[in-house]
Design a protein around this nucleic acid. Structure first.
Lengths: 211, 211
DNA sequence: ACGACAATCGGGGATCCCCCCCAACGGCTC
DNA sequence: GAGCCGTTGGGGGGGATCCCCGATTGTCGT
């Protein structure tokens, strides 16, 4: 029941270092130092976990994750990089990586990370954890705004549609009421929320993720 | 150099179970089974890690995390709950928890989680990891949209201001150009992005986090 | 030198948005 | 029943937006 691990890194020295450190505990089924052979070999071996470098020629780790992900959805990826840049982390997670650790990691911690990735965990270096948490927290505010409570049900209906960019006429048609009624509701909403026009209203709504 | 842990759970049986399992490895400096005493005692003990239940009377874990977070920013929180509902996870992370695990966790894994939380890691149950990753991936698209490349520099300037809710007149004043020029740019942008009016444009921009 | 294009500006007109005024109906509370 | 409020609708006016037409300047590449 050992875990099959595949390594991808364009620095061969680093590759052999990782291999040496992990081979005691895991079965290293293979390794590659460029994107194309990595994709081909991972498809063949179908390992449990792939450690993949972020920055490589010909597309980097993203290309590997996206290509393999389509054919071998069971393979889990752990990004391993010198970079702790937000955009790199985001890009890898978007591509489908289940974790991201920097190369400053200690060998025992890396082994632990591989185990956790295989168990289904998400793994991030301590420094990146806070960043990921912040982004996650900002992702879906969604809580009840007390300001929304001052609005009546119908006003909220109108607000939602206005926030989506519909013209008064379209809102009227969707709610099956007259344009004049839509105007009345919008006026009430603007007054209650202390806004001056529908553009500010749309902005107010988008900031609150009311869509 | 042992880790000081404080426990908060309104179920005393569960509380003593956790205490029994963790007391070998960690120093359990105290525990509480309601929100108010939890807040008071955590402030006094200033532990390294607090295990806190999500659902409790008088505000639940959120109240504990938010109150203590203001006075003792060094305290790290691990949410421990029977619920794996997305809204619970989001609420706790927003409050300031550094991790969230379900109570189905095995004792050794819980001990491991406490260690990782203390080390600065973010910890999530395997089932929650995918959810958190998805939310994170959606949080900041931010990558280069190929559609943005069709726009000229000036058009993007105008787009940014329109997206912020400014009227043409205000955009004109800010960019020190005529209203007519603003209209021309907006028209080009609308045509290139296949949108029909400035409201859809504002929405298009807000979805892409162009602000 | 010529064409292509970005950026600037304008006229005119159709439509949309915003804000006043107003009023009717139903439901609720006092 | 009288009053309050939500929801519905209307008139009219002034400003904002959108699209059609046009134009000039400057830069860049062939």
């Amino acid at each position: 029941m050992s875990i099959d691990v595949f390594l991808v890194d364009d620095h061969r020295l680093f590759l052999s270092g990782v291999k040496a450190e992990l081979s005691e505990e895991f079965r290293i089924v293979g390794s590659a130092h460029d994107v194309d052979t990595a994709i081909a070999e991972i498809r063949g071996y179908d390992p449990d976990v792939v450690l993949v470098d972020v920055h490589m020629p010909d597309g980097g780790g993203i290309a590997v994750i996206e290509s393999v992900g389509e054919t071998n959805p069971g393979v889990k990826f752990l990004a391993l990089s010198v970079s702790d840049q937000a955009e790199d982390v985001i890009a890898m997670i978007r591509a489908g990586a289940r974790g991201y650790v920097t190369k400053t990691i200690e060998p025992p911690d890396l082994a632990d990370a591989v185990r956790r990735i295989h168990a289904g965990d998400a793994v991030f270096s301590p420094r990146l954890a806070g960043f990921v948490l912040d982004a996650f927290a900002g992702a879906i505010p969604s809580d009840q705004d007390p300001e929304l409570d001052q609005l009546t049900a119908r006003e909220k209906d109108v607000l939602r549609l206005i926030a989506r960019g519909f013209a008064y006429k379209q809102v009227a048609r969707k709610l099956e009421i007259s344009i004049k009624t839509v105007e009345t509701h919008v006026s009430s909403v603007l007054r209650k929320l202390q806004l001056s026009n529908r553009h500010e209203l749309a902005r107010w709504a988008s900031k609150r993720h009311i869509v």
